[in-house]
Amino acid sequence: MQKRTIWLLALISVLILVIAGCAAPAAAPAAPAAESGGEAAAPAGEPFKVAIVMPSTITDLAWSQAMYDGLVAVQEEMGGESAMEIAYSESMFNVADAAAAIRDYANDGYNLIIAHGTQYGNSMFEVATDFPETSFAWGTAVDTGKDKGYENVFAYEANAQEGGYVNGVIAALLDESGVVGVVGPVEAGDAKLYIDGFATGAKATNPDIAVNISYTGSFGDTALAAEAANTHISAGADVLTGSAQQVVGAIGVAKEAGVLWLGTQSDQSSLAPDIVVANQVYDWTGSIKDMIAKIQAGELGGTVYTLTLENDGLKIVFNDGYATPDEVKAAADEAIQGIIDGSITPLAE
């Protein structure tokens, strides 16, 4: 028993070295080496190898998890590990570490390397210059470097304002106090789009509503996000929303206070089934599948993917645990249709 414990501890320490070693890309879904040893037997030969470098974790219930879930869904569809391998590096808040990881993956012969953060753009383009045979993707971004001669870079973005608008409509209809609150991360990127869309949707539904917005200045400051939620509640808000992985802190507070929550990026219902009403979910499977198909056909980049409600990249997912009134669901559907047919512009002006 004693010996086993010591052996276990030693094993754990080694694993930690792998994880804390940061720059060293961790091999993906607990894929034991034994299993991938069977890859030689795979009929189609080499599996398609995808690597992703992300700023937070695959369990963040937000930005990174949305992409990881998409990759896993595509993997299942393609026929599992023998057809597609996924490797990932988490918590790459340090861009220099991310750059090293991107280069390592390129050296290791990955077919597609996803730099899952706007901040990784420069580093990724540098590596993309040295590895013209490897495909890269980054987001949120719209620049594939085509005008600079790059042919191996994809870009992707999310029209987060669309689901933001729908969430805003839902929030305004469920709100009773006349105040809704937004726990924002950094005033940029898809978070800002989402929040602007949310405010537009809420105001369009109830012109008198007060949409209080605060930013924590970070994506991962869970404690400050929780305090921001407390502040919104003290200021009278009875429906909250927010963006980035830090919102789990805010959801914890909302749950305790019995205040409603609207999610974005991933489905956050599981965290607080009583108070989460609906989520805008980023579904990247369509984009990933198209990238893989293009790469296999020899087209290594050049396309910009945009998630929208129309192309099903954005989905409004209601939480079954919360009894959303039918008229609210109907109004949400109406907003979705309006955005798709163009009669509603989710961003003011």
């Binding site: 963040d60 991962g220 869970t222 404690a223 802190g249 914890g252 749950k255």
Partner: peptide
């Protein structure tokens, strides 16, 4: 205060 656990939740606190 938060009633959740998230990786690196202290964020340098």
């Amino acid at each position: 205060l938060l009633n959740v656990f998230q990786e690196n939740m202290t964020n340098g606190l």
